[in-house]
Design a protein around this nucleic acid. Structure first.
Length: 475
RNA sequence: GCCCCCAUCGUCUAACGGUUAGGACGCCAGGCUUUCAAUCUGGUAACCGGGGUCCGACUCCCCGUGGGGGCGCCA
């Protein structure tokens, strides 16, 4: 059974970079029929932001990335038999595994103070020697350690890094070897009893039965430390697959400062969630079929970890917009109507509810985001500051004939079609000569929605009124 | 400073030693359409540099350059 996890820190809004990790994990897990776990990495209490966890849950839900196990959050009860799912609630697991490391002689108490360590770092920097823990406390005798602890000196637990090369097997990056001696003894449990990141992930992944770790390359350099911990605990490491970093247009790591990079913002801007999932999946991954506009089901069918690239990628808003437009265009009308509803402004687009389906269907190919619906529907009506239509002499008979024909015509598509045809026959106007004057008279604009829906949405009364007005003005 | 990772059109990518280096987004031109959009057709544009290995390198190796990451009682 494949078990994966998405493990964000509740330090802010869900970012496209993180969301992409969730997407990849989720797609991969769903493909293999595994279980997707949501875990909150909140051991750094100082950085935790109130409400961030809820925001993350909301964003994941909006993206349609459901999790099989995770903390109680946003109306979801805690689910899963491997909980709790917040690291701050898992202290017993860390204690238990620390004990195992201790029993194996893999860790030792370190009494070094922050000031001492900082001083060492500084001098290492100046001398150009590697920035590694010097190992002062590693050499302490058991008696001395016991004495200092008994005296109440605060201490952290440090991992005794063995003097051998470490090998990390990664699905994307292949075999990564770190020479012996490159890794300094690192803290596993802080003096306040909290686990450090490297220790917490390993313990959590072990106790949660995680089989595949898919995460950002930023973690690749830490993986050797984690592998060391697995080895010390006598447990086979999970399969690792690291994924390249998402960069901004300036090739810098995506920052919270630039543009709309949080999922919540894309949601507010009316992007189709499937487009986000689709786009994010395409960052560093390519479908074997070569198709790029893919729905969830297709993505699940086609994903595989072995088609993930290794080079960092630049986030491209243009392609996201393209995909959003395509997904909107393809969605069933009832769904589209529901999605568009929050973005409607009845004052600006006075369209009767029963005509909304006609109107929305007529403009759906104009929508890049759901938020575009307002501007698109406005095209059914003359703008508030639209100049009076400029009509030439040839327009007059067309408008007059249209007024006659539409006065008594039925209002369903076929009838309108026939009425327009009749106007054409009577006036000899065809194509552009026929439609342009009418469009101008009705909306004041040369471009707009297809004509039949335009008539239907405006309604007989308004249409006749506008034709009358145009004819009057034209004199 | 030391270590690890990365490098194909502007962007996302395909290529698994032999191709006119393919596709997608964007952009440009044209077709279709009452207009716009969608759509279709065509075009624009790339193997970071230098050495090797090989009959033959985008593909393999080395060096350089550029970018990313780590060396935290951050995650």
């Amino acid at each position: 059974m494949v078990r994966t996890r998405f493990a964000p820190s509740p330090t802010g809004a869900l970012h496209v970079g993180n969301a992409r990790m969730a997407v990849l994990n989720w797609l991969f897990t769903r493909k293999l029929g595994g279980q997707f776990i949501l875990r909150i990495e909140d051991t750094d209490r100082e950085r935790n932001v109130p409400g961030a966890e809820e925001g993350i849950c909301d964003d994941l839900s909006w993206l349609g990335l459901d999790w099989d196990e995770g903390p109680g959050c946003r109306g979801y009860p805690e689910r899963g038999s491997h909980g709790p799912y917040r690291q701050t609630e898992r202290a017993e697991y860390y204690r238990e595994h620390l004990e195992r490391l201790r029993a194996a002689g893999a860790v030792y108490p370190c009494f070094c103070s922050d000031a001492q360590l900082e001083e060492e770092r500084q001098s290492a920097l100046e001398e150009g020697t590697p920035l590694r823990y010097g190992g002062r406390c590693r050499a302490l005798s058991a008696a001395e350690t016991a004495a200092r602890a008994a005296a109440g000196a605060p201490f952290a637990w440090r991992f005794r890094v063995p003097d051998r090369e470490v090998l990390v097997r990664d699905l994307a990056y292949g075999e990564v070897r770190v020479p012996a001696g490159e890794i300094g003894d690192f803290i596993v449990l802080r003096s306040d009893g909290q686990p450090t990141y490297n220790f917490a992930v390993v313990v959590d992944d072990i106790t949660m039965g995680v089989t595949h770790v898919v995460r950002g390359v930023g973690h690749l350099s830490n993986t050797p430390r984690q592998v060391l911990l697995y080895q010390a605990l006598g447990i086979e490491p999970p399969v690792f697959a690291h994924v390249p970093t998402v960069l901004g247009p300036d090739r810098q790591k995506l920052s919270k400062r630039r543009g709309a990079t949080s999922i919540a913002e894309y949601r507010a801007q009316g992007y189709h969630p499937d487009a986000l999932v689709n786009y994010l999946s395409l960052l560093s991954w390519s479908s074997p079929s070569g198709e790029e506009v893919l729905g969830r089901a297709q993505l699940i069918e086609q994903v595989s970890l072995d088609r993930i690239g290794v080079a960092d990628v630049v986030f491209d808003g243009a392609k996201l917009r393209f995909l959003s437009a395509r997904h909107i265009e393809r969605m069933p009308l009832p769904e589209l109507l529901a999605a568009v509803e929050p973005f409607l402004d009845p004052d600006r687009q006075p369209i009767a509810p029963d005509l909304l389906p006609v109107a929305v269907a007529a403009v759906r190919t104009h929508l890049t985001t759901f938020a575009d619906i307002g501007a698109a529907l406005s095209a059914f009506f003359p703008g508030p500051d639209a100049a009076p239509p400029v009509l030439d002499a040839a327009a007059r008979p067309v408008l007059a004939a249209a007024r006659e024909a539409l006065r008594s015509s039925g209002w369903e598509e076929e009838a309108l079609q026939a009425a327009l045809k009749q106007v054409g026959t009577e006036t000899g106007a065809r194509g552009r000569a026929l439609y342009e004057p009418l469009r101008l008279a009705l909306t004041g604009a040369a471009h707009g929605p297809p004509f039949i829906p335009l008539l239907q949405v405006q309604g007989r009364e308004l249409v006749l009124q506008r034709l009358r007005e145009a004819l009057a003005r034209e004199n």
